[in-house]
């Protein structure tokens, strides 16, 4: 079932076209990765879909709701884990989770239950009382994603979720992302090709604001006659093979 649909989605800053006529469909429960070199338009696309910035033209629909007309409804069904770790540094881990519960209007009982559930899922029990700023980058990123999941979003935007993490922290986050597949629709941006290949159901490659190609990792490798996904990506971006 088609859950996210963009129709001619475009963002311009004065004369600069950052996202150009993006037409895309994403199925419910799918993990869709957006790849591209810096400035390709990935983050701007996520910003538009999460109602952070308004499109210059076109529209996008999540569960049938328009990002331009139904902003409040969209904000109730999405979760965003921004590119940088988005946590309140002087608050403890538990207080960070409580903050998000409160902002989403949870009752005390639901708040407690949700914190217990996420603590178990993300293995946070031992660090709940620690100040967020005192934790390592890996743990902060983990909390950042947990905070994005508080509202039980049907769509989760992950903007470079493993950027700057060590191999172990990255592998642990991959496990968490995999565990969400199927029931949460996810859009992931990353510069790590192996990450996109390992996690994604489908991959879209962007360049200069345009969506060049969409397919599974295998389809893209076949399309470019390469045996490594990274080579397929380079081939598509360099030669703009569509």
């Amino acid at each position: 079932m088609e859950y996210i649909k963009t129709v001619g989605l475009t963002k311009k800053y004065k004369e600069l076209v950052v996202v150009d006529q993006l037409n895309l469909q994403i199925e419910q429960g799918e993990l869709f990765s957006l790849l591209g070199v810096n400035g390709a338009g990935k983050t701007t696309t996520i910003k538009m879909l999460s109602c952070l910035t308004k499109p210059t033209s076109g529209d996008a629909f999540i569960d049938g709701y328009s990002i331009t007309r139904d902003e409040l409804h969209i904000k109730r069904i999405i979760g965003v884990s921004p590119q940088e770790t988005a946590i309140a540094p002087n608050l403890s881990v538990k207080e960070n989770l409580e903050l998000m519960c409160g902002i989403h209007g949870f009752s005390n009982e639901k708040r407690q239950a949700k914190i217990n559930e996420l603590s178990k899922q993300f293995d946070l029990h031992d660090i709940l009382s620690k100040k967020a700023k005192k934790l390592s980058g890996g743990w902060q990123r983990r909390i950042s994603i947990a905070m994005a999941l508080i509202s039980e979003p049907s769509v989760l935007f992950l903007d470079e979720p493993t950027l700057g993490l060590d191999v172990i922290a990255r592998s642990e986050l991959w496990d968490i992302i995999r565990s969400l597949k199927g029931h949460t629709t996810m859009i992931l941006t990353t510069h790590y090709m192996e990450e996109a290949e390992a996690l994604s159901d489908r991959i879209g490659i962007m360049k200069n604001g345009k969506l060049l190609v969409v397919g599974t990792a295998n389809e893209l490798m076949e399309m470019t006659s390469t045996d490594k996904f990274e080579n397929a990506f380079i081939s598509i971006v360099k030669e703009e093979r569509i």
Partner: peptide, 13 residues
């Protein structure tokens, strides 16, 4: 400067 405010802008606040 942090991404916290960006995150909060995507909530019903």
């Amino acid at each position: 400067e942090s991404s916290l405010l960006q995150r909060l802008y995507t909530t019903p606040l």
